[in-house]
Design a protein around this nucleic acid. Structure first.
Lengths: 193, 193
DNA sequence: TTGCCAACTGACCGAATGGACGGTTAATAC
DNA sequence: GTATTAACCGTCCATTCGGTCAGTTGGCAA
């Protein structure tokens, strides 16, 4: 269906270009002028689509967070043991991370200086809390190792998952990455007899 | 021994304050004025100790990198199987990360926009290559799981280690964190019968 | 062909930033 | 006391940045 008015960019295409640049050069190092050049329009044209630079960040991180909470909701409705819900959550998170890589990458680099960033961090902590509770439950059910503090286990588990943004690129992927992550996270890297 | 000249800050104290602020607010968001305020001196006084802002970054990331390569050298001289050298490298990296947390944190957040950052990334890639070779060797010796690509295993392993900078704080630590990391990395989070 | 509307332009602004520079102050060494 | 050394200050500057605003362009619908 054809859009009315002069053709060109819309909010979505501006956002995608912005997120790509933010990830490449960093949010602060990316000027609105850089973004304009990337889009092939002038800086002032951007302000037709979005009220300001930080709104682009807000939209991007919230898209990632919405995805994560959707996965968490799915995981919560899985029947069975907590460890099964946890594995579903891990695999789902890897899946989301892969298909929404730019948005998740941006989210995971937020440090919390502005109000927007603090709001994102607050939502992220809420997600981490869900993970921590699931890990604690699975450990209580005797499915996770009891010799490591559940809070530490939860952190390391999603530290492992989230580290994907540093190197994983869907383009040149041939292996099932969520399978690799799940195996190493749950069974470790060492071969067992 | 008393230092000559007017007492006050030296390069080391300026660097430590700078690194702390860079980690807290981000390198780009930290102005030389912010740093001056943090040190209790004026902005121009900073330029007595260091030729420019980016030199502070360079000094910081190189300190972290020197530490990592020192650990890698130690690991290389460990007698026995590759998997033992790998475990030594993992534990040593966690130890360095803990005792030099601010410097390593800054290093791991470098993205590669300036010449200084690209130089740091190049050294870091060299370290990652050492890790990857060690993992590949251990897998060839039959000590690591063969069902995951060694390159992927290496990335995930140090993704796990490096994720510590996101949450680990030495101050309120009572458990041996390198023990927890080694156990989860090598044996996984799942309890085995 | 007229009206509407989204997309876009170009000129501009106030504030912040990294840095330059000449001069000053407080300690130690002789 | 005098030289030396290291740390520090106040002022200024060129540049960059996010953002504003009044007006223009190009495609679609009636």
């Amino acid at each position: 269906m054809a859009r009315r008015g002069r053709p060109g960019h819309d909010l979505e295409s501006v956002l995608r270009c912005a997120v790509a640049l933010f990830n490449e050069r960093g949010y602060d190092r990316t000027s609105m002028e850089d973004l304009a050049r990337g889009l092939g329009i002038t800086k002032s044209a951007i302000y037709h689509h979005v009220p300001g630079k930080e709104e682009l960040l807000r939209l991007a991180v919230n898209r990632a967070l919405d995805g994560l909470f959707a996965v968490a909701d799915e995981a919560a409705s899985v029947e069975g043991r907590a460890v099964e819900r946890l594995e579903y959550l891990v695999r789902g998170s890897v899946g989301l991370l892969v298909e929404q890589l730019p948005f998740v990458t941006l989210l995971l680099r937020v440090r919390g200086n502005t109000r927007v960033e603090r709001a994102a961090l607050a939502r992220r902590r809420e997600f981490d809390r869900i993970v921590a509770e699931l890990v604690a439950e699975a450990e209580r059910e005797g499915d996770l190792r009891p010799d490591v503090d559940p809070a530490v286990t939860a952190r390391l588990l999603f530290g492992l998952v989230n580290s994907l943004i540093e190197w994983y690129r869907p383009a040149r992927a041939r292996t099932d990455i969520s399978e690799a992550v799940a195996r190493i996270a749950f069974e470790g890297i060492r071969l067992r007899a």
